[in-house]
Nucleic acid binder design. Structure first.
Lengths: 144, 144
DNA sequence: GTGTACTAGGACAAATTTGTCCGATTTATG
DNA sequence: CATAAATCGGACAAATTTGTCCTAGTACAC
């Protein structure tokens, strides 16, 4: 569904959000440990999220990553996906046709659009805050 | 959503089905032209579909690919996807966790399962016959 | 200022997916 | 039997994605 990069990105952002809610700024190393991802690769992804203003980074000792509280409410899953995978989740034909649309549809156009719209709606409706909810109480996980 | 191989596979199978319904056996070359796919790569994919009994191939002069009429009704999109991409559409966590399940879910587990079930249902409900319907009357397309 | 703990970013490497090439084999036809 | 038209299958090549390594730069603490 998503690229590995995107999966790591969502997990990383979710972890950062959960810690930011407790007032903790977290390092790359800690993030990679907590979401069980390759450190250097995760660094690249966090750079992207940082450039896209999804996470804030600070260099130097006691530096790390954090997300402003107001942003934790505001940022939706869809923004993270878009920052990493671009719009390919939203655009693009299920059968790979370049010019598939309602006028010249592929044989599964309508059925795909329906499912993709559901996905899109879910991504746009789910905030980082919601992602963190279960983590705090231990009913959801980011590893393994 | 699907791999390129799978996209080509669905398009190829759909084209073969549409021609088989008219009693025509079609060659690899013709298939690749009609679905606008790389010839040699399409050959590999058709081999897979052949091994999985989704299409029937005959070698030699006047050989080619075809699908039995009764199979056109019976074969569902899901079988084609499974033959090429395996079960990764059905199994597997949206965030890439190996052991994500209802007991130890990732933060988006439920929302993903809902969407994936829709996709699964669609794939299992759509037959090759249905895929060919619009092609005959020119309301759906397999190229571009 | 120096050391230490960080992120930034470029270059590189490995793995996977996508795609090509070519010889072997099969089958119909003359 | 010879030829032509086709699939089969293995080896290879290119492109993309995933992942590593190393250097530079930044900020805090002493």
């Amino acid at each position: 569904m998503f690229s590995k990069a995107c999966e790591y990105g969502i997990r990383a952002a979710t972890y950062i959000a959960s810690q930011s809610l407790e007032g903790r700024r977290v390092s790359l190393k800690e993030i990679a440990e907590e979401i069980d991802s390759p450190v250097a690769f995760t660094a690249k992804i966090l750079q992207q999220l940082s450039r896209n203003k999804i996470v804030a980074s600070s260099k130097g000792a006691y530096g790390g990553f954090e997300i402003e509280k107001s942003n934790i409410e505001r940022i939706k899953l869809g923004q993270i996906v878009h920052a990493i995978d671009g719009d390919k989740v939203y655009v693009g034909c299920g059968l790979g046709l370049k010019k598939c649309n309602a006028n010249k549809p592929c044989p599964v156009h309508d059925r795909f659009v329906a499912i993709r719209d559901d996905l899109k709606n879910m991504l746009e409706a789910t905030s980082l805050r919601e992602m963190t909810m279960g983590l705090e109480v231990g009913t959801t996980y980011l590893k393994r």
